[in-house]
Amino acid sequence: MPTASALTQEISAIFRPDPAKPMENKFTNTTPVSGYCAQLPRECEIAGMFSIRMPITFDSSKAIEANHSDYRQGATFKVPSDWRPVTVINSGTGESEVVEIRVSGIGSQYRLSVSPVELVGGGSVYGAHEKLWGSAWVYAPAPCRYSGVGLYSTYQYAFFWKAPQQAACSKQAKYRVPDMRYTYLDFAYELRTPNPLKMSAGHYTGTLSYSVGPGQDFDMGDVMLPNDSVISLNFNLEVQHTLKVEVPPGGNKVVLEPQGGWQAWLNQGRKPTRLFRDQTFHISASSRFKMGLQCQFAGSSDNTCLLWAPSSGQLVPVNISVTLPNGLTDAAGQPVNRRRLYLDGSGTELFQPGHYIDRRPGTVHFEVARNQVEEMLAGEAKNYMGNVTVIWDSEV
C-alpha cells in the first residue's frame, strides 16, 4: 500500500530593477529547473514554462486490461491546469500579495516488467510500444498536446505532454499489461506574479499544496497509485528595490535670487517680485516612496520651512515644491509638477513608478513669494538663511 506523505519543492523568484531594461518590470524565476525543461530549455522558453521533476513513483495496483472501457482503469493523467492563488507575506512588514500558478504540462517514464514485444507477440521495440497502446506515447491524447519528446528502450518509455486544460488525458491499452510503474513525475508550470513596483522591498513567503492520487489534484486514475500523497510548493519571492537621488556637486547650497539676478534692482531700482532657485537632481526609482521636509526653522502655522535673518531675527516662509520625471505619478496616477512639500507631508504621501526610472532628472523648486520679498526689502536685514532637508522615503 502507498504511504501517506508529502514532498516539498521550493519555488523562488526575484525582482531586481535592471537599468538596461527599465520597461521590464517583472519577477525572474530563479527555481532550479529539472526534468523536461532542463532537457529542452528552448521549448520551455518559447512557451514561458518551467519544469520540476519530483521523486514520486506510481505503481499499478492490478493489471491493466486490454481495451478497458473505463479510462480510470488504464493510463490516465489529470493535472491542476487551472490558476491557483497563493498568498505570500512580507516577513518584515506583514504585507500580503497574491501569486498565481498553473500546471501546464505532465510527463514521466513508464516501465514495464514484461517486454512490450512479448506482450504484443513480436515486432520491433518501438513498434511494440506503439502497438501496446494504439499509438506511441510521444503523441499526447486529447486534450493534452504533443511536445515532441519521446525516449524509449526495451522496457521503458519517457514522455512529456502539454496540458492546456484541466481534463483527463488517457491512453487505452490494446493488450493486457500485467503491471506498470511511473518512475518519476515531471510537471511544467507557469507563474503570474504581482507588479513588483507596487510591492515593498523584502522577502515574501507562502505555501500551496497539491494532493496526489485517485480523484485528487494530480490524478492518475484508479490503478496507478502514488507513493506520496501531497506536493507542497514553498514560494520565496525577493523584492530588491532601488531608490537613489543624486544632487550635482554644490547642489546642496541653494542661493535664492530674482529672475535675471540682482542687477536689475541694483542698476535700475526695479524691485524683484520673487526670489527663487530651481535645483535639479537625478532619481532612480523602482518602488513607491513619499516625500517630506525637515527644517532648521519652522513656524507653527506655515507648514513649511522658514528663513531667518541673524541681524534682525526676522523669519520668512520659503515655499518648496517638486517636479518628478515622467513615469512617476501620485496615488491618483497624475503627473507630479511643482507639487508643494509640507512639513506634515500632506499631498506627497505616495509617489509610484509606472516602470523602472533610471537616473531621470527632476527639480526641487524653492521660492519666496512676492509679499514676503516686499517684507524682506523693507527691513534692514540683508541676509537670510536656513537649513532645509528634502526627504525621499521608501518606507510608505
Rank of each mutant, 00 (worst) to 15 (best):
Q314S: 10
A13M: 10
D358K: 06
Q263A: 15
N387M: 07
Y36T: 04
Q166N: 13
P353W: 14
G35A: 07
N227F: 02
Y139M: 11
K198S: 07
F366I: 00
Y155G: 03
C144V: 06
Y139N: 14
N371D: 15
W308T: 07
W137T: 07
P249W: 03
A63I: 11
P80Y: 06
A298C: 04
K21C: 13
R340Q: 15
Q73W: 06
D217T: 01
K253A: 07
A158F: 10
S321P: 12
S108A: 09
Q156M: 14
A75C: 13
R176E: 15
Y384E: 12
T329W: 05
F366E: 00
P196G: 09
G134K: 08
K131Y: 10
F58L: 13
Y146D: 15
F289T: 08
R145K: 11
P325T: 12
T57V: 14
G292W: 02
M23N: 14
S61E: 13
L208N: 04
I320F: 01
K244A: 06
Y126P: 05
V254A: 05
C305W: 00
P19Y: 02
S108M: 06
T30N: 05
L132I: 12
L40K: 13
A63D: 13
V396M: 08
M180H: 11
T389E: 12
Y139W: 10
R288G: 14
P178L: 07
G269W: 12
S61D: 12
Q268W: 06
E130G: 02
P194I: 07
S147C: 15
R16F: 07
G345H: 02
E367D: 09
P226V: 00
G121P: 07
S312C: 09
A309P: 06
E375A: 06
R53E: 11
P41Q: 05
N383M: 11
E24M: 12
E45T: 04
N227Q: 08
T348E: 07
E95T: 05
E95G: 05
T31N: 03
L256E: 01
S69P: 05
H241M: 03
A173K: 08
R16E: 13
R176S: 15
H203R: 10
D228Y: 00
S300K: 13
P194A: 05
C305D: 00
N371W: 04
E367S: 04
Q172K: 10
Y155V: 06
P353Y: 14
P32R: 03
L341M: 04
G250S: 04
W83S: 02
P317F: 02
T304P: 00
Y342M: 13
L341I: 01
I357G: 05
L324D: 14
A136T: 12
T183L: 09
L151S: 14
